[in-house]
């Protein structure tokens, strides 16, 4: 034991700085938030242990949380589904090495390297009310009446999905292009010789070979979509509420922020964070298991 320790001592010492940062900035805050989720911590007073009360209230009594949860699920399904679909479509359209393809890939990737705050402000301006926003100017030119985009509850989630798909499809496209280029050409040649149509080649070669990329795109998309915050906070926040008109854009993380930093319920907000963690964890696990199960079929 001592010999092994002596042999590896240098490695352990070199790990110490990372371990210190890892413990101090990840494990400690995480464990602290887990502890706080069982308390009534309000940011100032000494937290008092309240057992499962926060979780009980959250899951069985809090209508706003249920509303946020429902909004989030609808948003996640639409944003991840459409985002993945458009990423794949773009990759199929622009996977070549010619200049036009490279330029198109760069254009579609640009939102991924732009500050999300700047992008959200841009969207807010696009959907400005009256005659000021680009969206209303365009539909005005078409002879249509102006629309109150950000004050119409039925448009909130579609707008959030649009912003997410537009902003994220470039990143997914790059991953899919890498996946497409790694599929051996021989497979397609053999399929063509056997008389496979283009659709059959896509269905039975491209899609199965892209499964690891799809799993990655979907899992990372799920995590990002569940944590949506800036879009709601910047584009839809009103004077007095964070979730937009009639809470139509209220999602889990904005709700967490609202409880923690508007109402000082930091214990309760920690409970929301842990419920969100569990949801993402379970869904990611299901996705990975599904991917593995399909592969084994």
């Amino acid at each position: 034991m001592r010999d092994r320790l002596r042999r590896n001592l240098t490695s352990y010492v070199m790990l110490v700085p990372f371990l210190g940062l890892f413990l101090g900035f990840l494990v400690w805050p995480l464990a602290n938030s887990l502890y706080l989720s069982f308390t009534d911590f309000n940011g100032v007073n000494v937290p008092e242990f309240t057992g499962l009360q926060n979780f009980r209230r959250l899951l069985f009594e809090d209508d706003r949380f249920r509303h946020a949860l429902m909004n989030t699920f609808v948003y996640v399904i639409a944003a991840v589904g459409l985002g993945t679909l458009f990423s794949l479509a773009l990759a199929l359209a622009f996977s070549g090495s010619s200049w036009p393809h490279r330029i198109m890939r760069t254009i579609f990737f640009l939102p991924s390297v732009t500050s999300s705050i700047a992008l959200m402000l841009l969207w807010k301006w696009i959907f400005n009310p009256g005659d000021f926003g680009l969206a209303n100017t365009v539909i005005g030119r078409l002879g249509l009446d102006t629309v109150e985009w950000l004050a119409n509850p039925s448009l909130t989630i579609p707008i959030l999905v649009l912003m997410s798909v537009w902003g994220g499809m470039g990143y997914g496209m790059i991953l899919y292009v890498a996946g497409l280029n790694s599929i051996p050409h021989e497979y397609y040649e053999a399929a063509r010789i056997d008389g496979a149509t283009t659709w059959n080649q896509f269905r039975y070669i491209t899609l199965p070979m892209l499964r690891p990329v799809t799993t990655y795109v979907v899992v990372t998309g799920l995590i990002t979509a569940f944590q949506v915050f800036e879009a709601v906070y910047i584009v839809f926040r009103g004077t007095n509420n964070i979730g937009g008109v009639l809470d139509s854009g209220l999602m889990i993380v904005p709700y967490l922020y609202d409880q923690g930093f508007t109402h000082f319920k930091l214990g309760y907000a920690s409970a929301v964070a842990w419920v969100l963690f569990l949801i993402i964890f379970v869904l990611s696990l299901v996705n990975l298991r599904l991917g593995r199960a399909v592969k084994e079929l």
Binding site: P129, G130, D131, F132, E148, W149, L150, A151, N152, V245
Partner: peptide, 14 residues
Amino acid sequence: APTDTVAAGNALAT
């Protein structure tokens, strides 16, 4: 009256 808030100056100007 618009449900989506238009800043006062912009509203008067239009």
